[in-house]
Simulated scan of single mutants.
Amino acid sequence: MLTGKQRSYLRSLANNIDPIFQVGKGGINDNMVKQFNDALEARELIKVSVLKNSVDDTREVCNEAANLTDSEVVQVIGNKFVLYKESKENKVLVLP
């Protein structure tokens, strides 16, 4: 579980990154979960964009993605959300 200070720090880092995934009307499938896990292992922090043709709300998609990948929700703003998961092998970020 992230503290407020850690969440704030991760939000500041997420400002400078672009979304690397897009979730459309198909929602989140098994292949996307695998890609999320691979990206989280490599980067620890990812930003995802939810397209307007998506059936689900951005917060619903974010919570589902966080549950399926065992990651932490950093923030949800508009149609984008940010996830964080500590890497096992190549730790890049040091939380305050």
Rank of each mutant, 00 (worst) to 15 (best):
I20M: 15
L83Y: 03
V82R: 00
L68I: 02
Q22P: 03
Y84R: 04
D30I: 09
G27A: 06
K88A: 14
N53M: 11
D56Y: 11
G78V: 01
P19C: 06
N90R: 14
V82A: 06
G24L: 04
S12F: 08
A65V: 03
V23F: 00
A14W: 00
P96R: 02
Y84P: 03
Q22R: 13
K52D: 12
V50G: 04
L45Y: 01
K25S: 13
A39C: 08
G78A: 06
Q22D: 08
A39L: 09
E86M: 12
N79W: 01
E64V: 08
Q75I: 09
Q75S: 15
K5Y: 10
N67T: 11
V74C: 01
F36M: 08
A65C: 06
Q22A: 13
V33T: 10
F36L: 05
Q22H: 12
A65R: 02
F21E: 05
A66R: 06
G26T: 07
R7A: 10
Y84A: 01
V48K: 00
L68E: 04
C62Q: 01
K80W: 05
A14K: 00
N15F: 10
L13K: 06
F81D: 02
K5G: 07
G26H: 07
E86P: 02
K88F: 14
Q75L: 12
D56K: 13
V55W: 07
Q35S: 15
Q6F: 06
S12H: 09
F21S: 03
T58L: 10
V55Y: 14
F81Q: 00
R11Q: 12
S12C: 04
V73N: 02
S8H: 13
R11C: 13
I28F: 03
K34G: 11
G27F: 05
V76P: 05
E64A: 15
L45R: 00
S87F: 05
Y9P: 00
T3F: 08
L10A: 03
N31S: 15
S12W: 06
R11F: 09
L95Y: 09
N16F: 15
K5S: 14
D38I: 13
N31L: 15
R11N: 10
L83S: 02
E89C: 07
A39S: 14
K25V: 06
V76Y: 02
L40Q: 06
R7K: 13
P19T: 01
N15E: 08
V73K: 12
T58R: 04
L45I: 02
Q22T: 12
L2E: 00
M32Q: 12
F21A: 05
S49K: 13
D30G: 11
E44A: 05
R11E: 11
T3E: 05
N90S: 15
L10D: 00
E86T: 10
N90Q: 13
L95E: 08
L51F: 05
I77H: 12
V94D: 15
V74W: 01
A65P: 01
V48H: 02
R11W: 04
D57R: 14
N79Y: 05
